[in-house]
Design a protein around this nucleic acid. Structure first.
Lengths: 110, 110
DNA sequence: CGCTTGATTAGACGTCTGCCAAAATAGGCG
DNA sequence: CGCCTATTTTGGCAGACGTCTAATCAAGCG
């Protein structure tokens, strides 16, 4: 399963790449982190908007990208929309990048 | 350190995003996997080029992106250039995405 | 040397991305 | 209902991205 164990085939790469792409923007990375690390597991969009110097539509756009790749879910309750991280998705990506031996012990080649 | 433990600040996000962005393309993902999973730890560019329906310059471009983000290193030996994955970099990204509890056991909220 | 093979760089082209302002949708409340 | 706040959708624009062809750089060899 990890990327270092055996070569990803085209299909696997095609399926994984969009998730990494979603993480490839600083704003989305922070959004995901804000959501994933929040006590209670969910965050209201209004709280996220305040954390950036960006307009609400822009934040909404980034959240949509995260949602479409399955990294977060959204639920409307009354006036507000709450976002929640999907630990399953994060764990999968983490596993794909995981290296068998501790990275620090990388062998030296002559 | 992991993304779920506490919110990434702007600087951390700015530093991590380019790496994830580099992984956000299927071709680069496969390239990295081919390099990282190869016996001996290194792969000649000529072998990589053959694995795709893309021109050599395009492969070279993607390898450059991977190299610039520190995910791989390149070394020329004679006629050929060999690429090698940086386990340290992979491990770091994996750690950032890691979730404390197994993803499967995600708690259910009422 | 001059050629050949391996790899990268330069330049061009269409597409995608991130941002914003403006408009639309959703729900609550007087 | 009509309005107000929260959020998303639409449309437009500048810049970035992935790909190619053509040209250039590197190294080995006759």
């Amino acid at each position: 399963m990890p990327l270092v164990s055996e070569p990803l085939n085209a299909g696997q790469a095609e399926r994984l790449a969009p998730s990494f792409k979603a993480l490839g923007d600083p704003v989305r990375l922070r959004l995901l982190s804000l959501i994933a690390s929040h006590a209670g597991g969910e965050v209201c969009v209004c709280d996220l908007t305040d954390a950036f110097d960006l307009t609400a539509p822009t934040i909404s756009h980034h959240l949509k990208v995260l949602k479409e790749t399955g990294l977060v879910t959204a639920e409307r309750r009354g006036t507000w929309v709450y976002y929640r991280a999907r630990a399953e998705a994060l764990g999968l990506l983490s596993a794909v990048l995981a290296v068998p031996q501790p990275a620090v012990l990388q062998e030296s080649n002559a």
